[in-house]
Design a protein around this nucleic acid. Structure first.
Lengths: 250, 250
DNA sequence: GCCGCTGTTTGCGCCCGCGCAAATCCGCGC
DNA sequence: GCGCGGATTTGCGCGGGCGCAAACAGCGGC
């Protein structure tokens, strides 16, 4: 059965708070691990079909409940995706830094966005229309595989958190949460690992299923022991090994 | 850049506890929702590259920690995937009935299987070698899209459980867990909905992050109120609406 | 038909971590 | 430089649900 070459709907990047200038090419995404399996031509075409967009700190990429018209890749900056429950509770589902996808799950399941990703820093993202991206996936198998690999990691992370939340005490969950943050957006500095992601105690609580009070208490205790070094929306791991011990051992 | 047509490694279905008889064709999978977006030719080819396998009740499809050589689709029966933590705790990550995939996440992330799916009934599955399936995905975009849709649902379910586990009290979590089970493998009977999936109180606890004691107590209370009807590894929802109220309202 | 195993029920006490409250601190904007 | 708002710290008390223990019930095998 002959399958016709998929049409990619074209659009120009002049609307909204799109970034003025030329259409993006592969150079913008070449360094991202996500696109490693694509060759230069594929990367160029994928990038050319995206629209770059600046999101100022505090702005949302989209809002929980909206129909999924587009999906995004973070180029620089970072986002935290929070979900509010019908009864007003809030959970931080995910943080995404450079190379992270956002909105893709909803595009594939064709259900409303389940969370609202808010920029924690001025950020730059690429945006693809839903149909454009699925068409690109159909055209480039390597892109499909990159997507399933990424989603697989999402699932494994969610399952890890799920396992933790039902078998581990708060202290360990917090240790795991912080280690995850460090792994994702940590930077080695002279005397430890710095988390380059402005995050509050509240957020850590919302990520680990604890209250900000408990998080604060725990971090204070660790600070006493010289394991971490805290600050306002700032955290440095002085002794990551000790955290690993707390997370896995006792 | 011309991409050569992908070679599909062939194998014959005579080893292990493979099902004797002819190679499966599309008729085995036509009725599954997962394959709806594929046309008949595609379905035939996808099925023809799989090996059918019977799994007796209590047997494992694969074991946590093994390298992901294959992925599976449940045709009949059911599995519960349990994960054991380093410190000996256990969690039920997922239950899979007909039409459910298993092992796919590990195949895509190329990390060891994170859980062990055990058959709760005599079951029949299709098995694809890892490379065979990725090659099929590369050949048939519709298959890739079916996979990402399925994985997207996995992610949404995991996130829902995650949200529940950190914002909801035990009773509601149990209600949600049971409703999820009913939605996935419930059968309408004369006086309610029967869960056609042999499951113990223990398992429900492991799925919802509660102890079997609490689950038992909760179900007993509901039984008093006529909301459910329990039995050994058996459950009937007499008043699903009441459960919905418990799960969502107060 | 009996026995043993596995799943289920129920009681009791204790402890972790939430809920509430209030003080303090730090950075950013003006 | 100053003030304000959001972030953080810390104290106190209570209660949900786990941990432990023991008895009971259904099902399958011999």
């Amino acid at each position: 059965m002959a399958r016709p070459r998929i049409e990619l709907p074209r659009h120009d990047g002049a609307a909204g708070n799109a970034v003025p200038g030329r259409r993006p090419d592969g150079s913008a995404i070449r360094h991202l691990e996500f696109f490693q399996a694509l060759d230069a031509v594929e990367r160029d075409d994928v990038a050319a079909n995206a629209r770059p967009k600046r999101i100022a700190k505090g702005e949302a990429l989209f809002r929980q409940g909206e129909p999924p018209r587009a999906l995004f890749m973070v180029l620089s900056g970072g986002f935290k995706a929070t979900q509010v429950t019908p009864d007003g509770h809030q959970v931080v589902m995910r943080v995404a830094g450079p190379g992270g996808l956002a909105g893709h799950v909803s595009v594939f399941t064709e259900k409303p966005y389940p969370a609202t990703p808010v920029a924690v820093t001025d950020s730059l993202v690429l945006a693809w229309e839903a149909q454009t991206f699925t068409a690109l996936m159909a055209r480039y198998p390597a892109l499909s595989l990159a997507v399933v690999r990424d989603m697989g990691r999402n699932i494994e992370e969610a399952h890890a958190r799920l396992r933790e939340s039902s078998t581990e005490r708060v202290e360990r969950r917090i240790a795991h949460g912080i280690l995850r943050l460090a792994r994702q957006s940590g930077r080695r500095i002279e005397n430890g690992v710095e988390i380059t992601f402005p995050i509050t105690r509240q957020d850590i609580g919302l990520m680990t299923g604890a209250t900000l009070h408990t998080v604060s208490r725990t971090l204070s205790a660790w600070e006493q022991e010289g394991i971490v070094d805290g600050g306002r929306q700032h955290l440095v791991l002085r002794d990551p090994h000790a955290l690993l011990r707390i997370a896995d051992e006792p």
